[in-house]
Amino acid sequence: MKTQTLFSRNSPLGAPLKIVRQTFSAHQGKPARRLSFVSGLHGDEMEGLYLCHRLIQALRQIKDTRPEEFLGEVHVYPAVNPPALNNGSRLWPLYGTDMNRMMGPHPDKSLPVQLAQEVFDDIQEHSDMAVDIHASNLHLKELPQIRIIEEFSEELLPLARQTHTGIIWIHPMAGVFESTLGYNLNKLGIPTLVIETGICLRIEPKTVDRLFQGIMHLLVKQGVLASLPEEIPPLPDSRVVYPREVSQACAKHSGLFISQASLGHRVGEDEIIGQVVDPVEGVVLEQVTAPDTGLLFTLREQPTVHAGALLARVACDLEPRP
């Protein structure tokens, strides 16, 4: 494994601000394919960091014992936003900026933009394909899923299937994606999968282990590794969810959401999945019901809600009601 610094700036306090890339090169000659894994764009999303740890640990072991297994090249960017990661915050604390809203061509030369641009350029230079790993935000807990913007689905869906991630959600484009790493790499012709899992500031080792196994399958199917390590089991196929197959429940009242459902379980249409309560008056404001029959793959975790807040998403068994 080769450790390379792709971004370094001296700090007024002493320790420089540095970002590293870990590279596992092909055993011989030109790499068959180059895959990059990125995590930590948001400093409160920890699952990706642990997934990178698992990946680096496994690849180091293969490199040490069976280097000929490496037909292609792997680059891991485990912590691309150190100021936010050290602060445990989504945003770069000194500037209050979101690193995943600064990708693509940007005229500004502020330090966060410089960092975003140099990370972006480095990934572009070193990748035939990329995986950008995120946890969810403070509010919602997610089943492990790959999210694909509709316009890229033809190319990305076969690649996403190779990861055997539980859910592949193909969703419509929105303006918010235009400044993200995934969208801009895809626009440049570097197929990029975006993983979303769990909730921020937490790590669920079992979930990450399962994602790790899927990544190992991807590396073999992409021809980066010659064979699957013995300890990686076969995995079931992913469930592909199309835009019309997702229904969501939103709060009609402001209050505390008290969940009565479990993420990853099936729910029936109109089944009660929680309540919104008024803690000041001691009354139940609404019973929250499942909008459709299907798999509950997003569930509100932060209980404080304003009217309109997203509480749950269901991957429907049938097309949702009009």
Binding site: G96, D98, N137, L138, H139, G175, T304, H306, G308, A309
Partner: peptide, 27 residues
Amino acid sequence: GNPVWNFDSQDADLTFPGMEVGELAET
């Protein structure tokens, strides 16, 4: 007194056009 609300870390000037029914900043 901060540029963004810590609860959602959402810059309002990166939230337009928002949504009629959505999270508070979007609304």
